[in-house]
Computed example of a mutant assay.
Amino acid sequence: MPQTLLGPLPLDAKIHVAGHRGLVGSAIWRHLSDRGHTALVGRSSAELDLRDRAATFDFYAEQRPDYVVLAAARVGGILANSTYPAEFLSDNIRIQVNVLDAAQACGVRRLLLLGSSCIYPKFAPQPITEDSLLTGPLEQTNDAYAIAKIAGVIHVQAMRRQYGASFISAMPTNLYGPQDNFDLESSHVLPAMIRKFHDAKVGARPEVALWGSGRPRREFLHVHDLARAAVALLERYDEAAPINIGVGEDVSIRDLAETVRQIVGYEGPIVWDPSKPDGTPRKLLDVARIESLGWKAEISLVDGIRATYDWFKDHSPLAGAGDR
């Protein structure tokens, strides 16, 4: 095993942020840029399809980055995961395998693979510790995506064992913030709520219908906090085990909906549809390990939702004739 490469990221180090235009990647890119990093590398999916192995290897052979943050992924909420499980499995495994193999082949110093808290069993003890991985069955509505992300964790560990690579993986909780996906066919729960309440307010609709019972509990982390965590891990963490990134607090979906309704300013009632799936009953992460490294979430859920709604109104074409 080579000497550890921990310590401050050099401001002139070449850093490839894979998925730099998405919710997570764009936040990490902004944070690195604000810190003064001068050699950031990003390619849109139109410029570089990371599912294409030859193209990915050619890119890494040409660019030879020092660090990689693998934030590129096919993502979506319950509806998208349930409708397209084969694509979620295939696309994400190919992206991960190609990037990890190409990064190792060209001598990348450090790589951070970002996964998801959905890798943990559906009924894992709460809060969920990292050693819960592979101890029980997954939530069926997103098991294909979860299996792909679990494969990424194992691939990182295999790279460490076989090559001594200083690669790591981290599992964020539910993320939200600027650049989020507000499309109702593929979005996650929080941006979907923002969009639904906004549309109802603008359209003066008598009620808002939401999926499920509202009883499940979820934890939400603003992507600006996630970006700080990513840098902290590259600088301070070098272990084979995945590490959780979260807030350490959760909220019921019913209470979340009421908070979003108030922030958006919609005054009509909420109608719950219990015929739709709830997903995992609870998914709260144990964040003791990352907090022991000196990182802690700073943005409150109310402040984060308010800022995200402001971004949606100001930047998203889906906001339509919303209150600006």
Rank of each mutant, 00 (worst) to 15 (best):
Y60W: 11
L221N: 00
D183H: 06
D273G: 04
P216Y: 01
L40N: 04
L113M: 14
V153M: 00
H31S: 07
S116W: 06
A321F: 03
N98L: 02
A80G: 03
D58A: 15
A297T: 11
R51N: 07
D66S: 11
A297R: 09
H315N: 15
Y84S: 14
A72V: 00
D273Q: 15
I154C: 10
P121F: 06
G76V: 00
I263P: 02
A288W: 08
L50C: 02
G19C: 04
S187P: 01
E62H: 08
K283V: 02
R324T: 12
Q126K: 02
T141Y: 04
A229Y: 06
A229V: 05
L301F: 10
A227S: 13
L293H: 05
L175G: 04
L5F: 08
Y163I: 03
L9N: 07
Y163L: 06
K149M: 00
S300D: 13
I128A: 09
T259L: 15
D143P: 02
T4M: 15
R74G: 01
A319L: 02
V97G: 07
N92L: 09
L9E: 04
R195A: 11
L113S: 14
N81H: 14
I15T: 03
D273T: 11
E87M: 07
E239C: 11
E291G: 10
E207S: 13
C118E: 06
Q3C: 07
A288Q: 10
V202G: 00
V99P: 11
I150N: 01
L11V: 12
P269H: 08
D66T: 07
K296Q: 14
A230S: 13
I253D: 13
L210W: 01
A55F: 05
A105L: 06
D286Q: 04
V247K: 13
P8Y: 05
G322Y: 10
D310G: 13
E185Y: 02
C118A: 09
A124M: 05
H20G: 14
V108D: 13
T4Q: 15
P216N: 07
I194P: 05
E235H: 05
G136W: 01
Y266R: 12
T259V: 10
R306I: 03
P10S: 10
V202S: 07
T56N: 05
I243A: 07
I15E: 01
L301A: 02
A61F: 07
I253T: 12
A241K: 11
A39P: 05
V99L: 01
